[in-house]
């Protein structure tokens, strides 16, 4: 419940028009990978902390808080089939309501799977807490 931390690299973000879907997320990850390659920018090293409250992102070099994504804003998470070291989630931007797909490069496929499974557990715990609160 207190959360788990993973060291990943943020590869990028792209807008999507649906909150979930295998084809949709695969296409989004493909776009992010292509853009990152085109730009040739090294993916930013981040620390991703997962808990039933949501996902918190810190810049690993400066320890600066990058983003605090509430669990209620995250619609979906996945490990991409083609890029199996890539973990991605789709979240709604609170400012403008747009749906963003964020993709992260993990050191190994197992790490990507561990992150996805941990986020899924956070979804489940958050749902149980939400039902109690209701």
């Amino acid at each position: 419940v207190e959360g788990m931390t993973f060291n990943l690299r943020h590869l990028g973000m792209t807008l999507v028009d649906q909150p979930k879907g295998e084809e949709l997320s695969a296409a989004a990850v493909k776009r992010i990978v292509a853009t990152a390659k085109a730009i040739g920018k090294k993916p930013k090293k981040v620390t991703l902390k997962v808990s039933p409250r949501g996902i918190v992102l810190y810049d690993r070099l400066t320890n600066k808080l990058l983003e605090n994504v509430s669990i209620y804003r995250i619609s979906y998470c996945t490990v991409d089939k083609q890029h199996d070291k890539m973990f991605a989630y789709i979240a709604q931007n609170t400012l403008n309501g747009t749906l963003e797909c964020h993709a992260y490069l993990c050191s190994k496929r197992k790490v990507a799977q561990a992150v996805a499974l941990t986020v899924a557990q956070a979804f489940t715990v958050a749902f149980e807490l939400w039902q109690v609160a209701k």
Binding site: I71, S75, Y76, T78, F123, F127, A133, K134
Partner: peptide, 18 residues
């Protein structure tokens, strides 16, 4: 081939405040 791992969030857009 390994199938994708994906999870939908049951609390997406559900907030306790409203």
């Amino acid at each position: 081939n390994t199938n994708t791992i994906h999870f939908d969030n049951p609390v997406y857009q559900k907030t306790t405040e409203d």
